[in-house]
């Protein structure tokens, strides 16, 4: 297997165009599992972990730009954690410390698993995805980027380079149910954001539909949120839990997170 290790974004985009079969890899916490189990045998890998352009985050006029290479560990630390507390909480529930040091926000988007822990907080924040190719850069709402189970709107030649978020001022939080207290794939998860400026409450959930999904209700009708979340969900029975349990747990998580946000 060939491994390309570009050192600049321009080089990475050129390689991406020249070698469409090369699988992008960042922290490797998803891709390496697929390789180990033989679920994926890409002809080549495009290693993005050396790209300085994808690291860290920056803020301009209240708009946060999270590099695709931002790790969960970084998302858990101040000052980012105080700007995006739900993302920080979600990041704390990802894997083990070692996995949180390797795994990245960009990788979570690229994999687009319905259980991706970073997705609900970013969806609830109305995040936009920044996509770059040799042709240029475009952005699109995260909700439009996620098409299905591990399917995204990434066009040929494109890479996820960043996530752009304008954090709400209101309270927000994240909750997750798993079969034990750490290192679990979510049975279901949910992030809630109170957007006082827009006069609405948004909740996004994971592991209960083909993609993470976002539900919006006016602030005045916040009490409706749990029911609306359950209506939007289409969970399945699997090895981790039943569909019925997931619906129930979503209702409970939505009511609790909402109460936690509105009480503060």
């Amino acid at each position: 297997m060939e491994v390309f290790r570009p050192s600049t974004l321009d080089e990475a985009l050129r390689l991406r165009a020249e070698h469409p079969q090369a699988r992008p890899i960042q922290g490797g916490t998803d891709v390496m599992v697929e390789l180990t189990f033989g679920d994926a045998r890409p002809e080549a890998l495009l290693d993005l972990s050396e790209l300085a352009e994808l690291r860290g985050f920056a803020e301009e006029d209240g708009l946060l730009r999270l590099g695709a290479g931002l790790t969960y560990t970084e998302a858990m630390q101040t000052p980012l954690a105080s700007r995006l507390p739900a993302l920080a909480e979600a990041s704390r529930t990802v894997g083990s410390p070692q996995i949180r040091n390797r795994g990245t926000i960009g990788g979570n988007l690229g994999t687009a698993s319905p259980a991706g822990d970073a997705l609900p907080p970013l969806l609830a924040e109305r995040a936009e995805v920044e996509l770059a190719s040799a042709r240029g850069t475009r952005t699109m709402p995260l909700a439009e980027f996620l098409l299905g189970v591990k399917r995204t709107a990434l066009a040929p030649g494109e890479l996820v380079t960043a996530v752009r978020v304008r954090p709400c001022e209101g309270p927000q939080t994240f909750a997750k149910v798993g079969q034990r207290n750490a290192m679990v794939i979510a049975i279901c998860s949910l992030a809630v954001v109170v957007d006082a400026e827009a006069g609405e409450v948004r909740a996004a959930f994971g592991s209960s539909a083909v993609t993470a999904r976002c539900v919006v209700v006016p602030l005045a009708e916040a009490a409706e949120l749990p029911e609306r979340v359950v209506e939007a969900a289409s969970p399945i029975d699997d090895v981790r839990a039943t569909a019925a349990y997931r619906r129930h747990a979503l209702r409970v998580l939505a009511a609790r997170t909402l109460e936690r946000c509105l009480r503060t």
């Binding site: 034990r180 207290n181 750490a182 290192m183 794939i185 699997d238 090895v239 981790r240």
Partner: peptide, 23 residues
């Protein structure tokens, strides 16, 4: 070991719920 139709559904350490330090 969750078994569907005789098949161990998830023969891996991720889904076989060994307790972790926090459990």
């Amino acid at each position: 070991l969750v078994i569907f139709d005789g098949q161990i559904a998830a023969p891996n350490l991720h889904d076989y719920g060994l307790p972790t330090a926090v459990d």
